[in-house]
Nucleic acid binder design. Structure first.
Lengths: 355, 355
DNA sequence: TTGTATGCGTTATCAC
DNA sequence: GTGATAACGCATACAA
């Protein structure tokens, strides 16, 4: 049992006062060369670990974090991220963390800029961002950098943002996984990779998945499968179903469809109407609309992006950084969870209870 | 922003001293009817949330937790549990948690009793137990109850233990999942459920998986699949491989094998020697021996019991209970994670970084 | 039975 | 530059 060393002890060892030690540790300056050396010498010998409990109690300062992500009303994918953030919030409010929420329209740059502005208005000590809009996010990150506000990003990886931390999935590997699952489950034939009325901004995002998918397919199973990328209309459009039917006509031996977004339910709905439910359908994310079709079997598998955990970890990392001044990983990939009808409940039951 | 109420504030409101409020809150007695009523009235009006930071700092007491689980040297399955415990330990040592480790031989009741004795000798404030040996665990739980020591169990569910919390998997559902995956992947034919030189004590444990497997099979896929449970020799025995070969002869149309334990690698090894690697093999747990065969394709899927998270959560729950006096869930099922070659790394990379 | 004073380790604010 | 000292909110020992 190594005895715990306090600032008081260090002060005694270095023959200075607690105040001086404090100034050295926090690099506040106003310390003579002489005193500095004495304290540093002691610090090198012993292993000082500050008592974080005492620190947070004493400094009793509060940290403001602004979260900036798409509005779940406009894309329900984000609902679980928000839940994760809120859960982290309630757990970390103990440490003086307060969180403000700023939701933007994922399809509107103006909306993003407006909410980003609001976020900065709160004079935050840290920012959690889902950078779905590339250029807007880059501009925003620059402002954060100028203001020296730590930035943690999640869900969408944008290399140039260079945030303090990124939390999300390895999309390339995710595509490989989808391909592997497809070759396991689908009968030999054609596999379609669908792009559903994609936003241009997301092209990099989607591209990584498709590249991974193709890579796996070329390495394996190319003898049994052929595959093709098809562009469908937006589900909002009345032509959506027709464009899917068209694709299936063009590729009559379609045995599987890989949906690179969380919109698998749109495909499922149309497949059910077309009576083509024997096609193996793999998509993303445990949103309610998808679960219906996973349960009835039209969707065979969902890959879970664990977006609740992304939100939770995002806040956790910011608390670690701000409150506890702990190092945090620059890049945190989350597991690529495979969800079927039979393990779905085990994932749903976990949102609130598990860290 | 609701202002934070402290004991001091309550005392002022109730016209008593802080000491009295403290005695009421902690039910220490020695309070007059009159004072009690005054304080209770105030407590009902306001929503007092004690500052846990201040509490732990003040009552700088330490909590001893004894962990009691099988020796990873004797069964490497437990290695990751230990890692999870250690990770939780390093994170929670801040709060005055100390942990002692007591490893027993999973096949020896005597070894268990000896280590259980050692654990109690440390005069622990809480105990984390992997109750692999049923009767021994029941006896031990009784002692814990007598001593009023909170008990948290993980991995093996034993209803009669009635611990403060159990953390693990829903084994019945796990069996259903395995069956579902088998019907997805394997070609129509015979599926074998193997029991490998099982310990009698584990029969309940294994039974739930098999029941779930059968249940799913009867509900679905019974037209394409038939299945059969086979008992194999212990892998330690020289007859192990022969007993497997024998089973495959008896069931010539075997297309899949479900191994209900973490010993899939033993089957894989023999299948490779027998040249029968086209059989779909599903097992449990990301232990090194299994990973080799998952990577080379003999093992098709592993279901991950997340044993590192089990250990981590076990300690976390005990800290929550002891240090923070927070309520903890009595039953915490973890996700049934499906691991393939392509998402394996995403699981391995997560052990240390994610809570 | 009650109230008060002291300490937990750190931070922050003063005088010096 | 430096070193005391008062908070932070709670628990506890002790005095009344």
């Amino acid at each position: 049992m190594t005895k715990i060393v306090r600032i008081k002890d260090i002060a005694a060892m270095a023959n200075v006062s607690m105040g001086t030690v404090d100034r050295v540790i926090h690099k506040r300056g106003k310390v003579s060369e002489d005193a500095l050396k004495k304290v540093m010498d002691v610090l090198e010998q012993i292993n000082y670990k500050p008592n974080l409990i005492a620190r947070t109690l004493s400094s009793s300062r509060t940290y403001r974090v602004a979260s900036l992500l798409p509005d779940a009303e406009l894309d329900s994918f984000w609902r679980s991220s928000i839940q994760g953030i809120q859960r982290a919030h309630s757990e970390h409010s103990q440490f003086g963390m307060t969180i403000s929420y700023h939701f933007f329209d994922p399809y509107s740059g103006d909306s993003f800029r407006e909410q980003a502005h609001n976020a900065l208005e709160t004079d935050p000590d840290g920012i959690l961002l889902a950078p779905t809009l590339r250029q807007e996010a880059l501009d925003f990150a620059e402002v954060c950098q100028q203001h020296q506000i730590p930035l943690v990003c999640f869900n969408t990886y944008i290399h140039e943002l260079a945030p303090l931390a990124f939390i999300g999935q390895d999309l390339h590997q995710s595509g490989r996984l989808a391909a592997e699952l497809m070759t396991m489950i689908a009968s030999p034939g054609t596999i379609l990779i669908t792009h559903i009325g994609e936003q241009v901004q997301n092209s990099a995002h989607i591209g990584a998945k498709e590249t991974g998918f193709r890579e796996f397919m070329q390495e394996n199973g190319s003898s049994h499968f052929e595959f093709s990328a098809v562009q469908l209309e937006s589900p909002a459009s009345p032509d959506f179903k027709a464009s899917l039917a068209q694709a299936l006509e063009t590729h009559p031996h379609t045995k599987g469809i890989y949906v690179t977004t969380s919109k698998a339910y749109e495909i499922a709905r149309s497949l059910e109407e077309l009576g083509k439910t024997d096609i193996c359908l793999i998509g993303y994310d445990l949103i309610d609309e998808n679960l219906t079709h996973l349960r009835n079997g039209t969707v065979n598998l969902l890959i879970n992006q664990n977006s609740d955990r992304q939100g939770f970890l995002g806040i956790s990392y910011l608390t670690d950084h701000l409150v506890f001044q702990k190092p945090i990983p620059a890049l945190q990939y989350l597991p690529l969870s495979i969800v079927t009808r039979e393990n779905l409940d085990s994932y749903l039951a976990n949102g609130d209870a598990v860290q």
